[in-house]
Amino acid sequence: MRILVVEDDPVLLNGLKVGLGLSGATVDEVSTCADARAALASSRFDAVVLDLMLPDGSGLELLAALRARDDATPVLLLTALDDTGDRVRGLDAGADDYLGKPFDLDELAARVRAIARRGHGRAGPTLKAGGLELDPATLSATLDGHAVTLSRREFAVLSALMERPGIIRSKAEIEERLYGWQEEVESNTVEVHIHNLRSKVGRGVIETVRGLGYRLPGPQ
């Protein structure tokens, strides 16, 4: 799950990056409207955590511009102004959820998971494909009812493939889910993760499509 956090307070921004990272998300952080616009134009995110008061403008304007160009990326608004009127304005401007500061990190993570899930068109909390089941809330996986231990990155690769079984995911797409901009991508990491996953959940689960990428067998 890749998330964009737009917040101008450096300590909170760091906390959101680390905290959401601990819950299994890949987080990109920006602190101005301009940077957020650039990030949203160049990458796809599963969800955006957006502060309302930013140094170069209002989060609401950013949100309105996003919705105006038909970008359906789920957005959670974060603000210290917890007046009902502000909440209503935020939600009516196209936000999917709203959280007042200070908030509980676990609650924020759960809400972000929920809006991201809805953004992918899923209602259920877990990802299922074949005998595999992933629970993004606990970062746990089971294969035919038996627990499988996965690393955070392995979990991210597997959930990227399981979100849309049968669809091919390119190596670049998977890398985008694994790393934020600031992180250095090692050239063969995706292959390493796929190799490790196959040894944990079985050889036949992940198909390699030569020259294109990877996929899980689609529903027949």
Binding site: G19, A80, F103
Partner: peptide, 14 residues
């Protein structure tokens, strides 16, 4: 005041 409080709480939970 709430923004730094939110930062403090988040970091404490981390």
């Amino acid at each position: 005041l709430r923004t730094p409080l939110a930062g403090l709480k988040t970091q404490a939970q981390i």
